[in-house]
Design a binder for these strands. Structure first.
Lengths: 137, 137
DNA sequence: TTACTTGCAAATGGTTTGCAAAGGG
DNA sequence: CCCTTTGCAAACCATTTGCAAGTAA
């Protein structure tokens, strides 16, 4: 449980991870990054690199409703998602109505707000209309 | 992966779980519920009951940034949290600015929005001021 | 040279499951 | 009675860690 200190060394593996996230343009899970890897590396190396990068402010970590952690490059197209709880279809939401609220919260609580996570869930039109799910009632 | 169907039976254990959540007045993790239990029951029973109740719309499940799932009684004091990333102090936020946005989203995407998860993170005054954390730079 | 990095395998922690016994309607 | 519920122990999955060997600076 340490905080930013050790100097990060530039390695092929870390560059690969950063490149992957850069190209993805959206947060990815450790597993997804691992699958896209170009350089040979162990999954535990991916996890260690990601956490180190988060500690150094290079990356941002967010836990989605699927229970997994996703890592992304900060302020890179800040957006949220609306996910269908049946088929998992995902829609990106570009507007974020929380900037103002964060300001108010800082004043009200004295906290220095560093971020937020927001995710909407629902049923997509396809699943709601035609019964396109595995099973029904 | 089934959806609401089997008839739920009323058992001492399920009543205990519901009572605990009722009294807590806020979402709790399976582990927390298990610790507060009054009736003898296995942790797996807690998990099974919780999921069944979620499937029947009696409870709502939300994964927090700590990676754990929390279960709560719907619309019961709908609120969000602001959590200090250093000491984990938690502040409840009662206002929820998303109702309107959900309406818009439904229209724009055609999804039937069933819920959302929102969590703010930051550094609390105590941690920001005095270095009250385990270690520093 | 000297930390910082990595691979490997084993350990965690939260959650799920198979199966047979117990219990609610 | 029949079907749901429960306990137990084992299985799972995402993530973490100890340790010895490898490597950037």
């Amino acid at each position: 449980m340490k905080t930013t200190q050790a100097k990060l060394k530039t390695t092929k593996k870390r560059e690969d991870i950063l490149r992957i996230l850069q190209e993805a343009g959206k947060p990815l899970s450790a597993e997804e990054i691992y699958e896209k890897r170009t350089v040979e590396m162990n999954i535990s190396t991916v996890y260690r690199a990601l956490h180190l990068l988060v500690d150094h402010g290079v990356l941002e970590k967010t836990v989605y409703q699927d229970g997994k952690a996703y890592f992304g490059i900060p302020r890179q197209k800040h957006s949220h998602h609306l996910i269908c709880t049946r088929c998992h279809a995902q829609v990106d939401i570009d507007i974020c109505p929380l900037k103002g609220l964060e300001q108010d919260l800082q004043k009200a609580t004295g906290f220095t707000i560093t971020g937020h996570s927001l995710e909407f869930s629902g049923i997509c039109p396809a699943c709601a209309g035609g019964e396109k799910t595995e099973e029904k009632e």
